[in-house]
Amino acid sequence: MIGIVDHGMGNLMSVRNAFEYIGAEAKVCREPGELAGADLLVLPGVGAFGDCMRNLRHRNFVAALDEMVIGSGIPILGICLGMQAMAKRSFEGGEHEGLGWLDADVVRIRPAGREYRVPHIGWNDVTFEGNNPLFADLPADPVFYFVHSYHVQCRNSGDLAATCDYGGTVTAAVRKGNIFGTQFHPEKSQDQGLRILENFVRQGGQC
């Protein structure tokens, strides 16, 4: 079972619909107790970083996720803001502490040139770094849907799994062991996105 962390923000329905479409069982979990038995976790997220962390704390998800992800090594996929929440801190509207799984900061993208509008909205080419099971069976020049104004800046280049170019290099995906994250939205990226979710589902039952 895939446990989708419901921190009260974002397009949980779309994420659940996408997993159901590819034949996986996904459950939206409003409190940590409901995550019991999940062999995969998804941390979606749309909105502001501060609110996201506040809600995670308020619903007692922080310690539970730490235990499942860091303690038990259950694979987790963070999507967009969900991936950003995995960083140490974010500078979106002040300074906020994140889950701290990635040695990284979340900073505003500052593309060079007025033709680059912010938010970065739309389909962009993504370049994969290294070998990542999430990106198996995808075309060499994949295109994914982005919508964001901030991105994750990894201090450890080994955590960087994919980039895209938007008037500078933007972090498109991260990976650190069982921790996966995409800045783009696989659940909104049609066939290529569904393929990524399928690849993630294959990570289940391996820990």
Binding site: M13, S14, N17, A18, Y21, Y145, V147, H185, E187, K188, S189, Q190, G193, L194
Partner: peptide
């Protein structure tokens, strides 16, 4: 709601 069940784009 019906659209989001089957459409995987924004």
């Amino acid at each position: 709601r019906r659209a989001a069940e089957e459409l995987f784009m924004p």
